[in-house]
Design a protein around this nucleic acid. Structure first.
Lengths: 156, 156
DNA sequence: TCTATTTCTTAATCTAGATTAATGCATATC
DNA sequence: GATATGCATTAATCTAGATTAAGAAATAGA
C-alpha cells in the first residue's frame, strides 16, 4: 500500500505525460484540470478525502489532465491495470474515457469543435441518425447545427 | 449469456425506473438520453455495435436516463453487480456516476443550477477553494459566477 | 399514390454568459 | 509600513447560440 505526501501546489501528473497510477485521497484536496487551445484552465473534478482521482486514459497513452494538490494532502497510489485486467471491467474503463473527453469538450470547445469530435468518436453514426439527434448530443439546437455545418463547408 | 432482440423505438429503460442491467450491443444502434425540466431531450451517448450502454447509477437507485433503440438491435444483457463486487472497482463505478451527472448538468442546466449541483456534489469544498476555481469547474467565468451568487441571494 | 407529419434549413430577433475594464480587498514581499 | 501581485466584484459592451417563425424536403401512413 504505497502512500505519498504532497504539498499544496505540487503536481501528480501533467497533461501529455504517461501515467499508470490512480490516486486515492486519504486527506487534503486535489483537483484535475485541462488546458484548452486558448490556454484557459477547466477544472475537470475535485477530489477531497475519500475520493479517487486519475486520468481515465490507458497507461500507455498520453494523459489529458493535470493533477495537482490544492491543499497539503496524502494519497494512496495504485496501478490502473489492477482493475482493467479484471473480467468485464474493460467496458467500464472505456466508458469512463469517453465521458472524460465528453466533459472536456463540453467545457472547452465550441459547437463546431464538438461536432468534429463527435464525428471522430462515432465514425459513421452521423449517417445513421437524424440531425436533430446529433444536435441533442452536442448540446445545441438543430438550427445551430445547420449553421455549424454551413460554416464547416464554407471554411474548408 | 442472455441475449435480446429489440425493435427500433423500443425502450430498454425509462428514467425513474430501477434497472440492474447493462447492455452490450451486438448489432444495431441504441442511445441513452435525459429529459430536462423544460421537457427537452439531451442525448447522453450513442451505442453502436461493440459498445456498452447502461445507467451508471447503482441497481437500487432510480435511473436518470432513457435507453431506446434507434435501429433494430441485438444486445447481450449482464448484471451491474458482477462488476461492482470486484475488488477496487467501486471507485470506478462512483466516478462514472459523478461524470454521468456532470455531463447531464453541463448539457441541460443553467449556470445557477450547475452551481447548486456543485454545492451538493462537493459539500464544504466551496469554502476551501477560490471562487475562480469554482467558476472553472462550472464552465463559466469568475465574473459570471459573481452574478450567479448575487442572483441566488436576491431570489431567496 | 396522395396527404400528413416530421425533419431540415434559413433568417430575424433575443439572451445568457463572455469579454473588457475599472475598483476595492487581501495577502505577500521588501 | 509601503508596495506589489493576485482575487473578487460590478458595470458596459459583445457574441455564440437560443428562440421564433416560415418555407422546403423528406418519411410515413392511408
Amino acid at each position: 500500500m504505497k502512500q505519498k505526501k504532497i504539498k499544496r501546489g505540487e503536481f501528480l501528473q501533467k497533461a501529455g505525460e504517461l501515467n499508470s497510477k490512480i490516486y486515492h485521497v486519504k486527506s487534503g484536496l486535489l483537483r484535475s484540470y485541462s488546458i484548452d487551445a486558448k490556454g484557459k484552465e477547466h477544472i475537470f473534478m475535485f477530489a477531497p478525502e475519500g475520493w479517487v482521482i486519475a486520468d481515465s486514459c490507458p497507461p500507455e497513452v498520453q494523459t489529458n489532465l493535470f493533477i495537482d494538490a490544492l491543499e497539503d494532502s496524502i494519497v494512496i497510489i495504485r496501478e490502473k491495470d489492477i482493475q482493467s485486467e479484471q473480467k468485464n471491467v474493460q467496458p467500464l474503463v472505456n466508458r469512463l474515457l469517453v465521458l472524460q473527453k465528453r466533459v472536456i469538450m463540453l467545457m472547452s470547445a465550441s459547437a463546431i469543435e464538438r461536432y468534429e469530435h463527435f464525428i471522430e468518436t462515432y465514425p459513421g453514426i452521423a449517417q445513421r441518425v437524424p440531425q436533430k439527434m446529433i444536435a441533442s448530443y452536442l448540446g445545441i439546437t438543430p438550427e445551430a447545427l445547420s449553421n455549424v455545418k454551413r460554416k464547416r463547408i464554407t471554411n474548408k
